[in-house]
Design a binder for these strands. Structure first.
Lengths: 329, 329
DNA sequence: TTGTATGCGTTATCAG
DNA sequence: CTGATAACGCATACAA
């Protein structure tokens, strides 16, 4: 294995000089810079990231904290896009990434989580899917020990940024489109779980719309569960003329229920997952670009790691209509 | 951050003694062992994995090499189970894991891939989804520089193990079940891609069955594509009385086509993914426990890392029938 | 059985 | 602008 020492010897300079070239330090003459780079290329030298993180306090690893739900493939699709986006962007920025699941730290204290991450050389974390009930994570954020980017939750401080689409506006937009297309008057809204940040934001969106357009609004809690949405639809859809759901999975449950009941109601979802194409009926939904969101999260984390302050980043969303023909390839 | 030095000082012993206790070395008196462990617990010390991999050549990281397909959520479900199984088992065994996608190394040479992995402190790799066309990976395996576990491909040598279900037998079993249930005589078999190892094994399975039972067999190549399976079904299902597919995704494509054509043919798939429940018709399929396979792969890699030799590991499969009621929760 | 000393491959701090 | 040299936290051969 070729090390920085080999490069230094071959180029006839000191190890520290090679290091400076590699890390783009200013005080290096153009001549030596070129010489070193030439040797690096010729020898195919790749700096050892492990040694770098041990030595430096700047170079550090980043953890993706993902919430897994093995019961439905809907979350797999989203998580896979998150992970893929993050890992690819991290490679581009030469950041070292590991994936961690909530379940791995769920019964740890803040201190335990902290030392676990420290032991892994981690300096930054991206948290996907935090709820108000995740006390330990909130403490972790407050502590400010790690640089953190939170997806879809409004947490910002010195060392914490948050990122996500405007859920209230997105919910407003997609519901408005669906309702106007079908001239609806009475809306059944199937909300997410009470502890989710996005749930309440999306709820605000539909409430605003119904107030503005003087629509009758019935809100029921679907817990992001397909089955629950199915049951709620069975029970309440007859007295309403459309079903707005806070997630695609619930929209699928609702639509399947309507098909079984043999009645028609327009249904709209939220997320834009491929699964939506398998239901047999077209539905409107909000498309979030999870890959792009995750890439952006890595960039934001990189900013924090470089000493900049936390802030809020809003990502764009689009409205789409999904059918089988679109997703089959 | 509490280091091994702090523990040593607090326990009144040398750093090396602490290290020996941590790594379960034999030559430590029970008294000091207890004393050290007490301090470790009290201080909440967790050894720094980064320093350990840098220092030792035994402790090393493991890479999960995953093939991504962002066009379909079917592979997301499988990959997510692979990743989840591996990461959880790795944490249990105190192994350090990173996830790498094929796309990140696809235009590298063997040497480049090698030094990339080396630079990441990687000593073992699990390869998910290799095909005969992945020349670089084959060279990597032949080189024997890394300990490797290959999923679903028959590669074994000194430092390489392979693991997976018995694809030929599984294909035989599920097809037999489906064919006997429906008293079929003429089978349309939609195979996977020509470069896949599992494709040819599964093909062997169906061939064996058809020979044994004197069935007429028509084989077409579906490239593991839902659309391709749909087209093939449209074209060839009329002259056959059942459709056996080498993957669930193709089974879904086939079944959707049959529904659109308004004719009935029993269809069976392979993998046991949740998506199968969304088609509206029940189908037989082979269920692979991807989580368990991946856990086993990590254990196997651990064996190799401890100096044992490569071997072949066969995992069990089950036959299931999937419908919407089973997968909705 | 325990402690000392050296090295792993970098980065960073100083002299020069 | 360049080069020694000391960390970083741990493992391990060797000495005691």
């Amino acid at each position: 294995m070729v090390s920085i020492k080999d490069v230094a010897k071959e180029a006839g300079v000191a190890i520290s000089t090679v290091s400076k070239v590699l890390n783009n330090y200013p005080n290096v003459s153009e001549a030596t810079r070129q010489k070193v780079n030439e040797v690096v290329d010729r020898l195919g030298f790749v700096p050892n990231a492990v040694a770098a993180t041990l030595s430096s306090k700047k170079t550090g690893r980043v953890a993706l904290l993902v919430k897994l739900n093995l019961d439905t493939s809907a979350s797999d699709e989203i998580n896979m896009e998150y992970i893929s986006g993050a890992i690819h962007k991290a490679k581009e920025l030469q950041m070292d990434v590991i994936t961690v699941f909530h379940s791995m730290i769920e019964d740890m204290t803040v201190d335990e989580v902290t030392s676990y991450f420290e032991s892994q050389g981690i300096r930054g974390i991206i948290i996907y899917g935090i709820t108000t009930k995740d006390k330990v994570l909130h403490k972790l954020i407050d502590k400010g020990h790690f640089k953190i980017v939170v997806i879809d939750a409004p947490m910002v401080n010195e060392s914490t940024s948050c990122i996500g689409v405007d859920h209230a506006k997105a919910q407003y937009d997609i519901a408005k489109k669906t309702i106007e297309e079908n001239k609806c008057k009475k809306v059944l809204y199937i909300a997410g779980e009470e502890n989710g940040y996005v749930s309440s934001e999306r709820l605000d969106g539909i409430k605003k719309l119904c107030e503005e357009k003087k629509l009758k609004l019935m809100v029921r809690n679907g817990q992001f569960s397909e089955l629950r949405a199915r049951q709620l639809t069975m029970r309440f859809s007859k007295n309403n003329d459309c079903v707005v759901c806070a997630s695609d999975l619930m929209a699928i449950g609702a639509m399947k229920a309507l098909i079984d009941m043999d009645i028609f109601r327009p249904v709209c979802g939220f997320d834009g997952i491929i699964l939506m194409g398998y239901v047999g009926k077209q539905m409107n939904t909000v498309k979030q670009d999870f890959v792009q969101i995750s890439e952006r999260a890595i960039e934001e984390l990189n900013r924090l790691l470089n000493g900049e302050k936390g802030r809020k980043v809003v990502m764009p969303h689009t409205l789409v209509r999904m059918k089988y023909e679109d997703i089959i390839i």
